[in-house]
């Protein structure tokens, strides 16, 4: 009975997924109720995290390159790319893409971290002018990203 309970607990914990942590960027507020990280500014720039499978297993440089090629081929314009190390020593890469959306220029920023068999993604999007106002704060905040246990 005790073993069964432990197995059940382990399964429940696995289903919860990783608990990513990151400082709230200046100018953003956090959605506490959403699964994973979710931030938004008063003028609608949105940030959220999600997990993807690192399959086939590859390193950060591979995925950053593949992502850039895929989005550029789809019509996104690579505007900036920045690879960095978090304060905890985890390597990450942010690529900012510009795209026409709803008659405006928008930015879709994708930050990738390789965490073992998983990829931790932090995505941000918003109209160009509004995004650029907070992009510095977001970059600073990404340095504090922690993929959790």
């Amino acid at each position: 009975m005790r073993t069964a309970l432990l197995v059940l607990l382990a399964l429940v914990c696995a289903a919860c997924g990783p608990k990513y942590a990151m400082n709230v960027p200046a100018g953003f507020v956090r959605y506490e109720s959403k699964k994973g990280l979710a931030f938004i500014t008063a003028d609608g720039v949105q940030v959220r995290s999600r997990r993807a499978r690192n399959y086939p297993k590859a390193d950060l440089a591979f995925w950053a390159d593949a992502m850039q090629r895929h989005l550029v081929a789809s019509g996104y314009l690579l505007h900036a790319k920045n690879c960095f190390k978090t304060t905890a020593g985890l390597d990450g890469c942010t690529a900012e893409f510009v795209l026409p959306h709803a008659g405006e220029d928008w930015v879709l920023a994708e930050t990738v971290f390789v965490v073992g068999d998983d990829l931790a993604l932090v995505e941000a999007a918003g109209p160009f002018e509004r995004y650029k106002k907070v992009s510095g704060a977001l970059a600073t905040s990404l340095l504090s990203f922690d993929p959790g246990p």
Partner: peptide, 20 residues
């Protein structure tokens, strides 16, 4: 920026890239 009027959907062999 309006080099392309809309984004085209391309299928990537890497599953997670198709969700971007």
């Amino acid at each position: 920026y309006h080099q392309r009027q809309r984004i085209t959907y391309l299928r990537s062999p890497f599953e997670w890239l198709n969700t971007l």
